[in-house]
Design a protein around this nucleic acid. Structure first.
Lengths: 179, 179
DNA sequence: CCCATGAATCTTGAGATCGAGATATATTTG
DNA sequence: CAAATATATCTCGATCTCAAGATTCATGGG
């Protein structure tokens, strides 16, 4: 780790959040414990819940639920012919197999995806985006990005890059092991 | 924003994660879009799901569900006599009022909390931790902190502080407005 | 004092998630 | 080649969550 000249994140406005209050409360009630980990991970969990609410709102304009968006965009990103196995969808969306079966069923009923037999493995199935599914995914993505940009306006571009890099170090171990 | 000498987050090991692959896929499929926001916010959402799974595992040793932990520790942090209104519990746990009523019902049946009339407002209720509830919260917290420390070992202490500060700037707007 | 407005909590019904186990097919091993 | 093991997906039942609306009480103006 080398020292270099870089942007210091030195905030003049130190606005408190719920986690500051939460940590202060623990230090008062349990001064014997080191609750430093909560400074990072409680913020991650709470921010994710806030984002989930915000997304639910943003998607409701497009008649899409967040879980529908997750599946449709996973297929969209795969590129033509826009198909993945349920197993690949699992690693992208981090839900259980039972949940994914259920999601595919419902999206099929809505005409946004279709199930095809996997030609190379008779156990398997491929899930393919329909043209309508593709359009819905594209529309919703544009809306989501606009919303996310507004939330991230709190940070400068280098700060966002720094934040992304720090988060990557935490997510990578989860994403790169069997677990 | 001043420039100072500080630790540069310059990683020799640039381990990829799912979000790197996700972003690369979008740039290939939708080169017209700027997907930079996903670098931060998709990592936040995915990390939160990984944490949720890890917590579920950690708490199962104590026969506690994550949602039970959230409610019990909110009350524990409040300090003696360990009581809060359902409304206060809402802002701490970010669930809807219907969900909270349900949670309080179930925790009451398990003998971990009890409902008392609010002496200063006859509409209101106070939820109080029972002695057993308090013990369960304290045990589970110790276990959670140990697990979180292991996850955060990927970062140095100043990196953790930096990460917490950056996240605070994103959570504060959510935590400090009516929304 | 009474009514209108607002706030805090609870009720309800629909829908989504999880975990565990079932089923069918692949792959490896002896 | 047969048996054992592993993999991919689905089924099922129990919870858990949410959104919307109902209920109960507080508060302020007339």
């Amino acid at each position: 780790m080398q020292e270099t000249l870089c942007q210091q994140t030195h905030y003049t406005d130190h606005m408190e959040d719920e986690v500051d209050r939460l940590v202060a409360a623990w230090r008062r009630e349990r001064p014997d414990l080191d609750v430093e980990p909560l400074e990072v991970l409680s913020r991650v969990s709470r921010l994710a819940r806030h984002l989930d609410r915000a997304r639910r709102l943003a998607f409701s304009e497009h008649q899409l639920e967040p879980w529908e968006f997750d599946v449709l965009t996973s297929l969209r990103r795969a590129g033509a012919p826009y198909q993945l196995s349920p197993g690949q969808l699992l690693t992208q969306t981090l839900v259980t197999s039972g949940t994914m079966t259920n999601r595919i069923d419902r999206l099929t009923k809505k005409g946004l995806v279709e199930r095809l037999p996997d030609p190379s493995d008779r156990r398997g199935v491929l899930v393919r985006l329909t043209p309508e599914g593709r359009d819905r995914a594209d529309e919703a993505l544009a809306g989501l990005l606009a919303q996310e940009r507004a939330i991230l306006a709190q940070l400068s571009r280098p700060q966002r890059a720094e934040l992304a890099a720090l988060l990557r170090r935490l997510t990578a171990p989860f994403d790169n092991v069997p677990g």
